[in-house]
Amino acid sequence: MNHLYKPTLMKIEQIKEETSDVKTFRLVFLDPLLKETFQFKAGQFAEISVFGEGEATFCIASSPTWHGFIECSVKRAGKVTQALHQMDVGDTVGFRGPYGNHFPVEEMRKKDLVFVAGGIGLAPLRSLIWNCLYSRDQFGKITILYGARSVADLVYKEELKTWETRHDTYFIKTVDPGGETNDWDGKIGFVPLVMRDLDINPQNAYAIVCGPPVMIKFTVQGLDAMGFSPEKIITTLEMKMKCGLGKCGRCNIGHTYVCKDGPVFSFAEIQAMPAEF
């Protein structure tokens, strides 16, 4: 019997150590047909399982425009992520997905985009950023503001360099005060504060925010003050999930299921929810 909870198998093709506790896994479907046909949209998530340890939810951090593999960035935090971190290239994991909604890429066309990310929160945005950069001419000005606790906590270091050197993106990196090193060439300060000094025009723009809850809270306040309408501020929420299918009943905020109606929400939608996240 085939059912919803049966995962398809994927092989770990590459493991990249991003920080001391974050690794990015490149996964490839064992089934060659699925490898060719698998599609998803930026912002969707998947349930990845280590057999014998369990399943956990991860956003797909690679761009939908990359074919043949997906990438997920995993921060070591619990049982499953710990087990994932111990795996080697060539090992098999289970995959269910893609689930959830996605970033409104179509609506974002022709608009300016402001990406604000903190820490591992860059993972879902990375998918969208590369998606937008793939058809760069269809979008307006792209601003990326990325911050982390310290220099060592910055993820995707090579890609940050690429974004920094590209002429069609405006990239700002920052670390929290005290997290800088001697040769740090970015800004020092909390993301919402750094954002204030940026030249951002809220007219005809979308802001996409992801990071720890505190950062989101203050960033959204800042964006609001700049004149972004709540519909144009987009974020992804994180709740504990088990099934990803709207059955297991733990990711709801009010009657909204994060796994089915989310994880991507506009700030306007979040305002309408009860404050329980």
Binding site: G52, E53, G54, E55, K242, K247
Partner: peptide, 18 residues
């Protein structure tokens, strides 16, 4: 109807349980 999904294994084999 809320449920949890967990794995239990021993040696080379195991089960995923709801």
């Amino acid at each position: 109807h809320c449920f949890d999904i967990t794995d239990e294994s021993r040696g080379y084999a195991g089960e995923r349980l709801r």
